[in-house]
Design a binder for these strands. Structure first.
Lengths: 136, 136
DNA sequence: CTGGATCCACCAGGATACTG
DNA sequence: CAGTATCCTGGTGGATCCAG
């Protein structure tokens, strides 16, 4: 979502730049490799920096720090620093972050319900499409 | 989502590979630059190939063709070929594609409702986080 | 322990040209 | 009209080293 665009459509009649469409911006954020995963990890309980790293073993420290910063800038998570030595930083969900997770609920259910069928279709891709058409 | 992972967490206690998590797969698909846009364009009515290109001016033919193929392989859209000369190919939503759009509804509403506040927070990023914390 | 800074590999995706 | 093939660039993100 870095390229300049000039499309006049997006969603629900959104008629501005593609890059200013709210839905696009949200998907750009949670659609990346780590944001959603972090949000869902923090849903259960606040975590410290390295605890998050352990909960998501394959994230690099760079992406962990960067993604957390972005999520905080968006007000989706909070960050609390204990000025001890060594320092201890804790992250947790904000109300806004929680509301996002709630809004994701139906999508999550859909994903779990449809995943097997989609994977089956994808496997025999190239053949006829199996989905029932809305229009002929 | 091309990198091999071995994480043991994902969503709702999903305990397989990150890459096999249904929600990750769905987000990988609709989170890309064009899929959701195409789905929403097709929601209103079926479109022909070049009509889609005109509805979304800044998509390249390569990405248009590629994204359509993937969406079809996942059974989210159907593809109908008229063997005329010149050929005419029409795309439209399947029932599954429509159900995905429905599942996206709450997220879309959330995005529109939260976008202004998020952008405001993002602008003065670096300052204190404004979201109300769930936990202190 | 919690990051920032830097270097670099990889690949998604745009431009262009060509085919059925 | 509806794609496919090829080349090439720029951004994403991993690895590594450094700092508070």
């Amino acid at each position: 979502m870095t390229t300049k665009t000039s499309a006049a459509v997006c969603i629900d009649g959104w008629s501005g730049d593609l890059d200013t469409c709210p839905v696009r911006q949200v998907l750009d954020r949670i659609g990346d490799r780590w944001s959603l995963l972090l949000l869902l990890t923090l849903k259960d309980a606040p975590h410290r920096f390295n605890a998050l790293g352990r909960a998501i073993p394959d994230i690099s420290r760079r992406m962990l720090a960067g993604t957390l910063k972005t999520l905080e800038a968006d007000g989706l998570i909070w960050r609390s620093v204990e000025a001890t030595t060594p320092p201890s930083v804790t992250y947790g969900l904000t109300a806004r972050g929680l509301s996002l997770i709630m809004a994701l609920g139906p999508l999550v259910e859909w994903a779990f319900a449809q995943a097997p069928a989609i994977l089956a279709d994808r496997r025999r891709a190239g053949g006829a499409v199996s989905g029932v058409a809305i229009a002929p």
